[in-house]
Structure formats: C-alpha cells, structure tokens
Design a protein around this nucleic acid. Structure first.
Lengths: 239, 239
DNA sequence: TTAAATCAAAGTGTCGACACTTTAGGATCG
DNA sequence: CGATCCTAAAGTGTCGACACTTTGATTTAA
C-alpha cells in the first residue's frame, strides 16, 4: 500500500476555470472592469498565469450570467446594462420571486421568521451600501432556497449577478449622493416578511412583486459617461 | 468598397461547438442517448471528427440546460429526470409563463389571436404526438416572445429542453398506450387563448398557471427500466 | 474460493501551437 | 493635409499532447 509518503495528491491546479470565473466576476461587479472593456483570452490567460482554456470556460459562463457579451465579430467585452436591461431584470425577478414567495409561504415556520428578522436587524445596522445590498440579496436568496426547488434557484442565480452589477454601479453613484436611506429598504423588508409569514401565499406573492418593483428603480449608471470620448459619429459604421 | 457578393457569414462564433451541441441535444431528446449513458469527450470527439474542445463546450452548455450531469468524479452522463425534477420544471414554467401571460395580455393585438388560432387549428390536425408537442411548445414560446423581454425568454429557454425531454419520453410511452387524446390539449389551449385575449392580465396569468399545471402530469419514463440488468445489489457500493 | 493488490485502459484538466479573421497603425496616393 | 490601401499585431476557433486520476479487470495472496 502506498504509505503516507504519497505526494500532496490533491491537484494544486484543480479548478482553475472556476478560480478565473470568480476572479473576473468580482472584478466586473466591483467596477475594476468597466462595461465595454475588452476581455481578450490571451491577455487574461497571461494575467492569470494559465492557458486560454480555463479563461475561455470562465468567459462562456460569464456570458451566460449576462456580465459579458460576445460581439458578432467574436470579440468579448464587459456588458453594458441599459435601462431596458434593468427593467427586464426586474421583471424576471418578479416572475421568479413571486412564485418563490407563494411556495415559501406555504411551508413557512417560525424559524424562518427568526432568521429573516435577524437579517433585517443587521440591515438596519449596516454602515455601507455594499453591506446593505449584500444582506438584501441574502434575504431574497433565503426565500428562494425555502422553496426547495433547485431549478427555481438556478434560474434566479443565473440573473443574480446582473442584478448585483446594477446594484453596485447604482451604489457607486449614490455613495456620494446619499439618495435612499436605509430606512426605506429596512421597512420594505419588514412589510414583506409580515406577508411571507402571514400564511397567505397569494398575499406573499403579491407583496413580493411590489417589493421588488419598489426597490428597483433606475438610476443612470456612471458607465454611460465612460471616459472614451464620443469619437465622432463612428456609430454609423454598419454593414 | 466590399461588393454586394459578400456572403452573410453569420455566426462565426463557436461553429463546430454549436453543431455538436445541436446534434447531442437532438440525440438526447430523441432517446437515442438514454439517461445514464456516458458522454466521454474523447469518444464524442472521435465520433464527430473533431477535437475535444468543441465537444467540451457543448457538454458545458448541455449541463446548463439540464440535459447532462457532471458527476463528482468528473465523468459526464445523460441526466436522469425524476418525478421531483418534473415537478420542479413545472413550477419553473408556472413562474415564468404566468408573468409572460400577464405582460403579453397587456400588449395583445388581434394579430396575436389570429396566429395562435392557426396554431391550435394545426394542433387539432396533428397526426403524431411529436408534432402535437412541437406545436404546443411553439404556442408557449410565442407568448414568451410577445413580452419582448429577452431575459424572460432566455430563462425559459434554459429549461425548455428539459421540458421537451420530459415530453418526449412521456410520448414514447404513450405512443403505444394512447392515453391523452388531442382534444384535451386543444381545448385547453383554446381556453387559454381566450384568457390571453380577454384584456385582463390577471386572468391571463392565472389561466396560464392552471393550463401548465393541468398539462404536465407525471408519467414514469421508460428510462427507469433501462436495459441494463439490475446487476445484483451493486447499488450499495457507496463511499 | 474469496478478498486484496495490481496494472492497463480510459478520461479529465490543462497546455501550447496553428490557421484564419479582425483590428489598428502607418505608408501611400490624391 | 485627408482619405485609402497595406501590412503587422492581436484575437478566436480548433487541434493534438501530456500529466494525473479514476475505472475495471486481472492477478496474487489468504
């Protein structure tokens, strides 16, 4: 039997693709990578010290998540989210989370109220917008998970990062403007929690829809005024 | 100046990969590839006369579509759908299509009724279950597209093939049993169309949910009794 | 005969290379 | 000077190769 001298068998470079994925996603959401920035496989590969294969897999996944866009020419860029995208994401959330609320409400237990009350309490104490939005997402993900429907959760997760991208870029703007106070977010979640725990699935679903629609209002992202100068009317060049 | 003779040259992006994807998807849905069958990259690559790269991309996409499963060991198999999976898919459809019905209803035009009436007419004349289900999917996709929400459509498409896989395996069973007559499907769609065209979004959403729940009833797939002999109680071998 | 040890075959993750396409900068020509 | 053509650089899609792991069957030991 091969004794304890077995080399540190666990692949030092096992899930490289996943590592690249997480790294790129974080950079996009944090704003280090701005919408429109080019994502060239050889460049990223060199940057991560890997070959193109893992990078390529990560880019495909990011495209599926809506954070990255494959141009017709084959080039890859960080996606720019427009107001219409924002509306679409909100609507998709309404679809998924309304049903989730209905199903979760049907199998509600006091434990769930306790957990979410704690979440709201931490929301009230949050000192940064980033932390507040992290708790916000956590609240909603909890309801999704309660349904115990893996597919519903997967669908939600597949738009989750676009949603977070919207949130983050909005927040980077509001950090200086100080628009919406915590109180609105907190009280909105409190009302929602009451509906979820009410034992009335229909009410829970309806309140969830209203909550999402109320919480997602368009704020023009700082990215619409990127540093790239307008470059005259090159936009006409079409084929 | 590039003359008009330039061929369209559409989709240069991921051509071979897409071809492999479509091919494998068709084989899985048609039942040529059965749930549990192994999908080894080198084998498929040889089979398609390509290298592993395009095959790998296709498999990743199929996994996202839920038709294929990556084992913990890294191996890849055609996914087996259980009754719980079936329920989950139905619920996901209810979530997406109810909202789609609500939104579509709000922007309904006579043209839409005309198109869907034609669809139903062809349903009534369908001679095979395969054709009936093709028209069924077409009906629902039309409603999705009406919403003009690309994300809602994308989410729907990401479970679409699992749904078709359920349909197809159910149909392979019913082809011999002749269970549910066309009439039920046809009249169900007729009622649904009336609700969609009624101008009442809330009613449209509710009817859509009922329609989906009514149309998706679990039938044990033929795949649960695959030809692989039980092989004694090797199922106990766990780690 | 049964159970452990062994070893080849098959499979995955990753890599570097090549051909072809697109892009961009510079040389050329009006 | 300004537009046009040309060429080199950069980028993508695909390929074959290698190292390591898992699988299955076979051999060896009890």
């Amino acid at each position: 039997m091969p004794d304890a001298a077995t080399p540190p068998a666990l692949n030092p470079r096992r899930n490289l693709a996943r590592e690249v994925l997480l790294s790129l996603r974080a950079e996009i959401i944090s704003g280090q990578l701005q919408p429109g920035d080019a994502l060239a496989e050889p460049v990223l590969a060199k940057q991560f010290g890997s070959s193109r294969a893992p990078v390529r897999e990560a880019l495909i996944e990011l495209e599926r998540e809506g954070l990255v866009q494959f141009e017709l020419t084959g080039r890859t860029k960080v996606r720019t989210l427009t107001e219409q995208d924002f509306d679409e994401i909100r609507d998709a959330r309404v679809a998924l989370e309304s049903l989730a609320a209905r199903r979760a409400s049907a199998k509600w237990t006091p434990k769930d109220s306790t957990y979410l009350e704690q979440n709201i309490a931490r929301q009230a104490m949050a000192s940064t917008l980033a932390e507040l939005s992290r708790l916000d997402v956590e609240f909603h993900e909890y309801v999704l998970r309660l349904t115990a429907n893996q597919r519903l959760l997967t669908l939600w997760q597949s738009i989750r990062w676009q949603f977070e991208m919207c949130l983050a870029s909005t927040h980077r703007l509001q950090e200086t403007l100080a628009c919406k106070p915590h109180q609105i977010t907190v009280s909105s979640h409190r009302h929602l929690l009451a509906a979820l725990a009410s034992g009335k699935p229909e009410l829970a679903a309806e309140k969830m829809a209203l909550h999402i629609e109320g919480s997602m209002e368009w704020t023009p992202s700082e990215t619409s005024t990127a540093e790239h100068p307008p470059k005259l009317a090159t936009a006409i060049s079409r084929r």
